[in-house]
Nucleic acid binder design. Sequence first.
DNA 1: ACTACTGTACTATAGATATAGTACAGTAAT
DNA 2: ATTACTGTACTATATCTATAGTACAGTAGT
Lengths: 135, 135
Amino acid sequence: MRALRVDPAEAVPIWSQIEEGLRRLVASGALAAGQAVPSVRDLARDLSVNPATVAKAYQRLCEAGVLSVRRGEGTYVSDAPPAMGRGERSRILRQGAARYATLAATAGAGVEEASSELSTAFADLEGKRPPGGKS
Amino acid sequence: MRALRVDPAEAVPIWSQIEEGLRRLVASGALAAGQAVPSVRDLARDLSVNPATVAKAYQRLCEAGVLSVRRGEGTYVSDAPPAMGRGERSRILRQGAARYATLAATAGAGVEEASSELSTAFADLEGKRPPGGKS
DNA sequence: ACTACTGTACTATAGATATAGTACAGTAAT
DNA sequence: ATTACTGTACTATATCTATAGTACAGTAGT
């Protein structure tokens, strides 16, 4: 199973999907600090996208301090992942919660079900164990 | 305060932001079934975007069954909002939960804080009351 | 009929996105 | 030096996104 997936049909650009996916892997601990990430060409081949698209995601993550590149050698997860400002952290969290709540409401789910799914998602994240038998 | 906002700087296209925003308003009940939505030109002026961009969002929402257009008269919230397939509903919900959990983890938040924010977001949604004094 | 609104359908332009392909500089191992 | 990898920087093409502007068909009120 690939740890990273992209969908060209989505409205959000591929480089953004890659960026978000890598942030996820780093945040969940699947990619530890100092660990090497796939080369631009390897990941591009793996995802069936253009190397330039992967390069753009890597560049943005380097600027954000999530990744660190050693030229000619490879790209690695940064040792000191950047800390978020308190105000921004709060804003991001609130916005994400609103987004998920909207999604759940649209699907006809209430607080309980949404919260339950959230707990499951957290467990999957921290347990580094992929969610149940989905194809 | 505008009920709908868009950010041209985001990676996700404006028509997608409008579509999602309207889905949110409908799901939260801020826009009741049968109620008229702003005209393409009005909303475009209000959001400072192009009418064609709003039109694209409206068209997609019509195809999805969320909106219903009476030609020459206006666009209205559909009386029978489409029900999601059980499998898809579950998939969407799970995916949204995973996305939010990732976001929270990236921000350094645990299950408790994420769940708390979720409850707040739900209350804001169902209470039709905008979140605290944000400008 | 006239006016004013509605959604829709074009043209044209500019920028972002994604693709393929090529080339260059730095690092490591031989 | 050679080989093989790394990230980066280009050209060129095609598609999508977003813009401005114009035009047309349908509806309602006068």
